[in-house]
């Protein structure tokens, strides 16, 4: 009898622990991360493990970080960033990273109906992330208004250059225009013929001359790419 038979593959507790510990890779990791974002029961198992394992850090001695570090953080943090729009959309960008992505998303209720007659609800989201995570651009699509909200959240913008947003679908990259400067949410109205391409597509951002690519195809470096996910 093989050992595997003793431990069913679908033991969620074990899978949650493996995700929390960071033992998974490849498809298994992708699959588990998706479940942690969409399956609340599973997300709560992962969180249970996160809490237990985190107490392994209790015996680690604090070390004061260098004095100037917080100044760097402040300089990066304080250009204004309109978080409110994300709240209104009932979603929060996935900012936590491995394992704890579970804690994200959801929560439209809490920003409920007293704000406005109908709370816009995002149906598609994308996190457009550079390979080294030096750049993060969050996007959410609201079906009712056929609007894609895009925010450059993390990363330095190149002076005197623009960032252009692309919808990548069926092997083509279609320009969705240039992004507003850092700290502003860009609203992109999605024309009817592109709406069907969003599901299963991806978003990308590239470095372009001011005003965007003169040719209609990306001319500069592709800075970050991220798949569009259905909520």
């Amino acid at each position: 009898m093989s050992d595997e038979s003793i431990i069913p593959e679908d033991n969620d507790d074990v899978l949650a622990a493996e995700l929390s510990l960071g033992l998974l890779s490849g498809d298994a990791l992708t699959h588990a991360q998706r479940r942690a974002r969409t399956d609340l029961r599973f997300a709560s198992l992962v969180e249970d493990w996160d809490i237990h394992f985190s107490s392994l850090t209790e015996t680690i001695d604090p070390v004061a970080p260098p004095k100037g570090l917080f100044d760097k953080i402040k300089a990066q943090a304080y250009p204004e960033s309109p978080q409110r729009i994300w709240k209104k959309l009932g979603i929060l960008p996935a900012l936590i990273g491995a394992g704890a992505a579970a804690l994200v998303l959801i929560i439209a209720m809490q920003f409920g109906n007293y704000m406005q007659p109908t709370t816009p609800v995002a149906s598609l989201v994308a996190e457009v992330v550079a390979e080294d995570e030096s750049i993060i651009v969050a996007a959410a699509y609201v079906e009712d208004s056929q609007t894609l909200f895009v925010e450059w959240q993390v990363g330095d913008r190149i002076p005197d250059r623009d960032v252009e947003l692309w919808l990548v679908a069926d092997g083509d990259a279609i320009s969705l225009g240039v992004l507003s400067k850092e700290g502003k949410v860009t609203e992109v109205s999605i024309p009817a013929e592109l709406r069907n391409l969003l599901v299963g597509g991806a978003l990308a951002v590239s470095d372009e001359p001011l005003g965007g690519s003169p040719t209609g195809v990306a001319t500069g470096e592709v800075l970050a790419v991220g798949p569009i996910t259905t909520l």
Partner: peptide, 29 residues
């Protein structure tokens, strides 16, 4: 800390994880 400032802190839910355990998890991850 940038992530906490830029929206991460909004995902903290009182009650389950203690705040320091939640922060430790983020730092470790």
């Amino acid at each position: 800390y940038m992530r906490l400032w830029k929206g991460g802190a909004q995902t903290f839910a009182t009650g389950r994880a203690s705040p320091i355990s939640w922060l430790a998890t983020i730092a470790r991850n």
